[in-house]
Design a protein around this nucleic acid. Structure first.
Lengths: 338, 338
DNA sequence: AATAATTTTGGGAGCGCTCCCAATTGTTCA
DNA sequence: TGAACAATTGGGAGCGCTCCCAAAATTATT
């Protein structure tokens, strides 16, 4: 039988209330009591019963994490793993637990029912569902506080953290243009996801701003996967692009194989810029120029926002858009073409 | 304010107890009462408070999932994602929730304290920690029922599901030998993890059984990662192996790049067999011969075992070792050498 | 028709905590 | 020194459920 508050109280000679205050780091406890009680808690490895606390306080200290990867994406797109790591880390530090929901494993109705009826959740972090997924409306109705990772709707009152996808893509493509490339293609992610949309948007903006016509044949869908990148690149090769902005490093790896299999050189025949800066990208041959975004940090910020939301129900909160950074390596070439 | 049991009781004219029985589908309730109460529950969208239920019953319907990937492994090794998917799916179907713990995000002590004293967990699924990690002893002490994915200890009373790693590795290497290869190298995973150990074990057994001497220079550690596979392969190239058994597909991808970068052909110069059969492996050039293991199913079985354990505290339960299958594609070559 | 057996229902006790207010102790200042 | 105040401590009430046993209603049995 695990120890209870009452047990610790008895052992320490203080009351249940005082012990509770120590555990919850409330003030109004003498230094002497705090030290004595802490010691006994430590010695007996006491941990409060979360169910009891949840019942008494109406708060569970549990956040739900909802992500919607396809069956293979979870592995092939590093986004999910980094996000999970950021969220679990921040939650652990802040004494929250994380409940995981992989939404593709359930029907949408089931998922919503499970989540909204789950009276045990204090809040929700939701990511990578489809743009303007109607699920969000149901979650709003359920009154559970939530934060999105990746802006999901133009509705600014839905709280979110995001990377500045379009601006970063813009910079990448702009950099190609500065280097003198003209026929710039892109391999995009699915456009029903915000990252896919925004990165494509940035690509188009950069071309438009430099008066380069957008050629639909130079835009291929790669689904954020390695294989998608490979076959998208195969198709693009028919139109002989000089440079390709690939909207994720994972797709870029597929694209690199396609280029090599076609007997072409990077960056001499085709220059490449990726997106994500996953660990492998620095070690590719050639090393991949890419955009670094701190996904783990996004997860951490989402947790912080959620905690803030819960404790400041009526105050406003700013959505956060993190900058991303273009990391120049060899795959994009260096010499200016005239 | 959400409705409580008592509210539903009052509205229906029955007692708290009877309403509770209806909700928990217990018998001993008249058809009349059941119908009347069900209707009122439905109308008012009543959902029991899980914290209260947990406190009163001592059961939470929550399982903890503990995995210990390094910061990059979570992404680079498909094992984790597939396992998560299997576990979350099976739990959702069985009306359990999944609490996620990425153990590398916390110190070992913290993790153990959080888990073992987390009175809210009904059971634990633990995977990919180090072989004979002392953490397991603490979890045994804590009396929380748990199941390991991947055998972690020779102690048979620790319940586990696993793939037959050593046998499958044996088959792979044996297949090389049947094809006539003699200088067979291997790239291993970390040997403090069971999958790493067992696959290496199978490699050695196959050589031994065919009277081929084990050459330590033909064994390189690849840490189950793409980059690890690349540099392990680079080193192996110095000793000119004819064939390499790579203990994971992810490492095999790195190895393939290393071979190609050295200007060699697969399988003509070097034959390759991987392990895992991740989706990309069929699409590599050349398509990768590999061993298919159903990780998702392991996750599902772990959940089933755990549920069985909880409801049959004293009964014995068989550990399960799933077979794996050698999938022959082009990377291992086909022609018999003389 | 009376009793026994069975089905159905009701309500007290208690799970381990938080919240709140009252009681106690300690400190300050005239 | 004693009153006024602040800091600290203690314990009752209650969160919403399950568990258990007793009471009531219903049915079966002689």
């Amino acid at each position: 039988m695990p120890f209870t508050l009452e047990d610790i109280a008895k052992i320490s000679g203080y009351s249940r209330s005082t012990v509770s205050r120590v555990i919850n780091k409330e003030n109004g406890v003498s230094e002497k009591a705090r030290i004595a009680i802490s010691k006994i808690i430590e010695e007996n490895d006491y941990q409060p019963n979360l169910a009891a606390r949840g019942l008494a306080s109406g708060k569970s200290k549990i956040f739900g994490l909802v992500i919607s990867p396809g069956i293979n994406d979870l592995f092939s797109d590093s986004f999910y793993s980094l996000l999970m790591q950021g969220v679990t880390k921040a939650c652990a530090e802040k004494d929250y637990s994380v409940m995981l929901w992989l939404s593709k494993m359930l029907s949408k109705e089931e998922l919503i029912a499970k989540i909204t009826n789950n009276s045990i959740l204090d809040g929700l972090i939701i990511s990578s569902i489809e743009y303007q997924d109607p699920m969000i409306d149901e979650i709003i109705n359920s009154k559970i506080p939530f934060v999105m990772v990746g802006q999901n709707s133009p509705n600014k009152s839905i709280h979110f953290v995001d990377t500045n996808n379009s601006k970063s893509a813009f910079q990448a493509v702009n950099y190609f243009i500065e280097l003198g490339y003209k026929r710039i293609a892109t391999i995009t992610g699915p456009t029903n996801k915000i990252a896919g949309r925004d990165r494509l948007e940035g690509y188009k903006m950069a071309l438009a701003q430099n008066n380069i016509e957008i050629d639909p044949r130079l835009i291929e869908l790669g689904y954020f996967s390695d294989l998608g990148g490979y076959s998208a690149m195969e198709k693009l090769l028919d139109y002989q692009p000089e440079a390709v902005f690939v909207a994720s490093d994972t797709m870029a790896f597929g694209a690199i194989r396609a280029i090599k299999d076609a007997g072409l050189q990077i960056p001499d025949d085709i220059a490449l810029i990726g997106f994500d800066n996953i660990p492998t990208s620095a070690e590719m041959s050639p090393p991949l120029t890419t955009i670094h975004q701190d996904i783990q940090k996004m997860g951490e910020i989402a947790v912080d926002m959620l905690i803030y939301l819960i404790s400041n129900k009526n105050k406003e909160i700013e959505n956060i858009i993190l900058p991303a950074e273009l990391i120049i390596r060899e795959s994009c070439g260096t010499k200016l073409k005239e």
